[in-house]
Structures are given as C-alpha cells and as structure tokens.
Design a protein around this nucleic acid. Structure first.
Lengths: 112, 112
DNA sequence: AATTATCATCGTAAATATACGATTAAATAT
DNA sequence: ATATTTAATCGTATATTTACGATGATAATT
C-alpha cells in the first residue's frame, strides 16, 4: 500500500523533502557538523565521534552522498569525506526561499 | 536491532533532526506551503489540494502537529489548522544557526 | 429524529529506515 | 609474503513510515 507518490508532487516540494530527509537523523546532522568543523577533510574519525558501529556510519554516509550533500574520495586505505557546499548552500537557499522569506502571517488574521 | 539511539546524541542534533523529519515528505511540505499561503486558516481543503486520501492527510497533519509546527482547532464540524510560527521560526533559526551561519570552508583548504 | 458532512482513529499491508555482525577488498605495515 | 588497518557491502532483524479503506464520533442540515 505504501506506494511512492512522488510523481504527484511538485519537484520543488520533492527536492526540499529529500533534503530534509537527508538531515532527518541525528547521526547525519552530527556527521555534517563534524565535516564542517574540520577544515581538513575527515575520514573515519566519524566512527569514533559517533555512537554507532562502523557499518551504520557507512550507511549514513551513503545516504548523505545519495542526497549529494557530501563528496567522498578514496585516499589510500582510508576514504575521505567533505561537504558539497555548492549543493548544500543551494538547498539552504531553497529552504529559506520557500519558508523563511515569504508568507508571514498577515498581521490581523485571526488564526487558531 | 533498529534500536533508538537518540539518547546518545546532542539534544540540538536530535531536535534539528526531528524538525527535518517533519519536513521530510513532499505532502508535509505542501501542507505547510498551503497553510502559509492562505491568510485564513485552512481546514480540509488540504485533502482536495493533495493527491492523497483523507486518512493519509490526517496522518501527515498529526505528524506536523507532533513536531509542533502546526496548531489545530475544531471549528464546528470542520477542523482548522495553521502554522505555529513561533516554533517554526525558532526551528528555522536553529537550522540556519547550525549550518548557514557558521563553518564555511576556510578558503584555501584543499578538500575532496 | 434521521441524514449528511467532516475529520480522527483503527486496522492493515507494504515499503523504508536503522542498526549491527560478518565478510570482503584494497592499501599499508611488518 | 603475511598481517593489519580501513571502510564498503551483504545479510538480517526490527522499527518506523506511508498509504488506504473502514469505522466512529461529532456537528450541521433536513
């Protein structure tokens, strides 16, 4: 029954929802935060930072990569990740455009 | 296995993730957009606007309510919803604080 | 009082997400 | 050459999400 109804929605809504979905787990928020904090690219210290098993961290990284919010590169035996700022900033802009900028309550409107 | 590891993360990360989760579906984005567009509170026209059954819309509304992003009120036989701007603006602020404001790439850092 | 409209909730089916141990593959170190 | 480190992937268990029809409850209409 849980069929995917993505086609039925606007692409803007879908892409914003996908962005939100990528952030919809504390581990992934923490990963992005950690990647942003370190000026140099971070590899597997993420596993040390997070309270999760290596396989699970890898899975979260995969999701962030799928959402195009991070880039990965193999550096010897290790693999190195960093934030994809182009896409990230773009999504933040889309987010703010849709919600923050527009549509404030029209002052005198009686609402709930 | 899929145990809830929320306790192991910072509350800021958890609350941001919860906020993101609330937006992590096109239907919920569309609901918020619709509620923001109409100056007067909207009831069940949402069902007409969305490509989903009434029960499903109700479920999504429940989730948004759980996240405290909307307020609901029974108005006769209908029930009326609107955005909870206090919370919503707060979460937007938290979002921008954590990601947009801080941590830009330090210019000369070689990254991925 | 009986009917209708509106919407929440229940029950349920199927898809996704979360988590981890085990395994694998590749690079590095011994 | 062998052992170790690093990280991806596989397999799997469980939890959560998504979706809908059916039912229920309440208010408005007839």
């Amino acid at each position: 029954m849980a069929t995917n109804k993505k086609e039925a929605f606007d692409t803007a809504e879908v892409s914003l929802a996908d962005f939100a979905k990528a952030l919809a787990h504390p581990a992934r928020v923490a990963i992005l935060k950690t990647l942003a904090e370190r000026s140099t690219c971070v590899c597997g210290e993420l596993v040390d930072v997070l309270p999760l098993a290596q396989a699970t961290v890898s899975q979260h990284l995969k999701e962030l990569k799928k959402a195009d919010l991070i880039k990965g590169e193999i550096d010897g035996a290790k693999s190195c990740y960093c934030i994809n700022w182009e896409v990230f900033d773009l999504m933040i802009g889309e987010f703010n455009h849709l919600f923050a900028g527009l549509h404030r309550p029209p002052e005198s409107s009686e609402c709930c």
